[in-house]
């Protein structure tokens, strides 16, 4: 059986880390994701934009008082993509 190609959008360390965090919660703050992944704000911002453009996550930006608050949430499309990524990766790991 030929192996399915891995989704290039998910097969990258930081984007996969963000998706794995978001799949387990309802929504998470940018600051929380930054803390948990240990990424720089600039890099994380770029990767979140990529995931959002692909429709894998939804991003809501609002102000709380004077502080900006960015909340990320995984979408249905993102869950499907994540699930098929995990399924495909298992093919590579089978003995």
């Amino acid at each position: 059986m030929p192996f399915e190609a891995l989704d290039p959008l998910l097969h990258s360390q930081l984007r996969l880390a963000v998706m794995s965090l978001l799949i387990s919660v309802e929504s998470a703050d940018f600051v929380y994701i930054k803390e948990q992944t240990g990424a720089t704000a600039g890099n994380l911002s770029v990767q979140i934009d990529k995931l959002s453009t692909a429709g894998y996550i939804s991003v809501e930006k609002k102000f709380e008082g004077k502080k900006p608050k960015t909340t990320c949430k995984i979408t249905k499309q993102g869950i499907d993509a994540f699930e098929s990524y995990v399924k495909n990766i298992q093919q590579y790991l089978k003995p």
């Binding site: 891995l6 097969h11 990258s12 360390q13 930081l14 992944t37 590579y92 790991l93």
Partner: peptide, 9 residues
């Protein structure tokens, strides 16, 4: 966290 390529494992 870097943005590097990953092995399946």
């Amino acid at each position: 966290m870097e943005d590097k390529e990953l092995s399946p494992q």
